[in-house]
């Protein structure tokens, strides 16, 4: 799996993603500088990592969404190849318009770093094809702006189209406002585009890659991508 991880000034989970991909799949991932205009030849997966791109000044992800590399990232997504935005990367994707919605300040008005549980709502995407539908993952979040927002009508449409991939839940898988750490509407933790090849998620799969560190539930996401890419390329 040829993975490219975009580095914006202020990204700080870029190396963690590289490590997670390497530890899970024993393949290298390359770093791509935000000022480049092309992705490395043959890139199959693009990851926009977490962090504080441009200091998160103005609005989270807003300035990164105007970086030179975004043109190539957009083309990559248009070709139907997988594009994953994690945390700040999710914020960048909503700012580029590749995903709907916006991420607002947490209900608590505090940064929250903690483990939470999310339920896999769809396992027919490149990112989740090796999870079970309804499976509960224990996975960390670390953000100040993670409250997923969409105007009511758009939210209904999103739900109707089944574009919610992850939802905050209890350890048993129950979805309720109480289990949403940041106040996200409908407990939304991750959404995809209509085509299903662009995923934005606030939880950090790269931080749940080894049981030594507390959870390995996130590793399956990289394995899913690997499997999906092998399958789709074999077609």
């Amino acid at each position: 799996m040829k993975t490219s991880v975009v580095v914006f000034p202020g990204s700080n989970c870029d190396l963690d993603v590289v490590h997670a991909v390497r530890a899970t799949l024993q393949t290298e991932a390359s770093l791509v500088w935000h000022e480049d205009s092309e992705l490395p030849e043959g890139t199959e997966l693009v990851v926009l990592p977490g962090g504080f791109s441009y200091g998160d000044y103005l609005r989270c992800g807003a300035m990164a969404a105007k970086s030179r590399i975004i043109g190539a990232v957009r083309k990559h997504a248009e070709r139907g190849l997988p594009l994953l935005g994690i945390c700040n990367g999710f914020q960048v994707l909503t700012e580029t318009g590749l995903l709907p919605g916006a991420l607002l300040a947490n209900r608590s008005l505090s940064f929250i770093c903690d483990y939470c549980h999310v339920r896999v709502e769809r396992n027919d995407t490149p990112f989740t094809c090796m999870y079970g539908k309804g499976q509960v993952l224990r996975i960390p979040i670390a953000h100040y702006e993670g409250l997923y927002f969409l105007p009511a009508a758009d939210l209904d449409a999103l739900e109707r189209e089944g574009r919610v991939v992850f939802r905050y839940c209890s350890p048993e898988g129950d979805v309720d406002e109480r289990f949403s750490p940041n106040g996200s509407l409908n407990g939304i933790a991750g959404v995809t585009n209509t085509r299903g090849n662009v995923l934005g998620m606030m939880p950090h799969p790269e931080r749940a890659g080894e049981s030594l560190l507390g959870s390995s539930d996130g590793a399956v996401l990289w394995r899913s991508l690997h499997k999906w890419l092998e399958g789709s390329l074999g077609k």
């Binding site: 700080n12 963690d16 770093c113 931080r207």
Partner: peptide, 16 residues
């Protein structure tokens, strides 16, 4: 206090 700190970035934290 400590849930306001990102104690996991760099993915090396074994005991938080």
């Amino acid at each position: 206090i400590y849930h306001q700190y990102d104690y996991m970035v760099q993915t090396n934290t074994v005991i938080p």
